[in-house]
C-alpha cells in the first residue's frame, strides 16, 4: 500500500542510524548518533530557517498486515493533534524527548545497528519535523 499522507520515511533502514555514524548539527558541530541529546535537535531546529520541531505522541503501535518485520505506529502530531500513521521496520529508531533512541523492537535495533535503544511505547513523545511556514 502507498504510504499514508503526510508521512515521509525511508522504506529501509538508513545508514546514519548505525552506531558511530557522524552527524552534523545545524551549528556545524559533529556528534556520533548514539551521543545525540534532545537539546541537540531543539537547538538545531532553532537555527534552521525552514524546519520546526514538533511533538509527536505515540497513540498506537500494531503489527503490520504486510510483513512481520514491519510495525504501524500512529502519532498525534503537533498542537493540532493531527493523526499520522507510519509503517516502519520494527527496528527503526525514533528519538523520544528526554529519553533518546527508542524502537518497537529495541533488541533488534541494538543487534542490527548497535545503537543503544529503549522500547517505544504508547504515550512516548517523539521528536518530529514540520515546515516552519505550515500553519
Amino acid at each position: 500500500p502507498p504510504p499514508p499522507p503526510g508521512a515521509v520515511l525511508p522504506p529501509s533502514l538508513p545508514p546514519y542510524f548505525v552506531k558511530g555514524s557522524i552527524i552534523q548539527l545545524a551549528d556545524g558541530e559533529l556528534k556520533r548518533v548514539e551521543d545525540l541529546k534532545t537539546e541537540d535537535f531543539i537547538q538545531s531546529a532553532e537555527i534552521s530557517n525552514d524546519l520546526k520541531i514538533d511533538s509527536s505522541t505515540v497513540e498506537r503501535i500494531e503489527g503490520s498486515h504486510t510483513s512481520p518485520n514491519f510495525a504501524v505506529v500512529q502519532f498525534s502530531v503537533g498542537e493540532h493533534r493531527a493523526q499520522v500513521s507510519v509503517e516502519v521496520l520494527v527496528e527503526y529508531p525514533f528519538f523520544v524527548f528526554g529519553q533518546g533512541w527508542s524502537s518497537c523492537c529495541p533488541d533488534r535495533t541494538t543487534q542490527i545497528l548497535e545503537l543503544p535503544c529503549t522500547k517505544l511505547s504508547v504515550g512516548d513523545v517523539c521528536i518530529s519535523l514540520t515546515l516552519k511556514n505550515l500553519k
Binding site: 546514519y16 557522524i22 552527524i23
Partner: peptide, 19 residues
C-alpha cells in the same frame, strides 16, 4: 567518513491540511 545532517535522523511528519 560520511557526515549526515541532523535532520535526516528525524521523521518528517507533516500533518495534511485537507480542508
Amino acid at each position: 567518513v560520511p557526515v549526515f545532517p541532523w535532520h535526516s535522523l528525524v521523521p518528517f511528519l507533516a500533518p495534511t491540511q485537507s480542508d
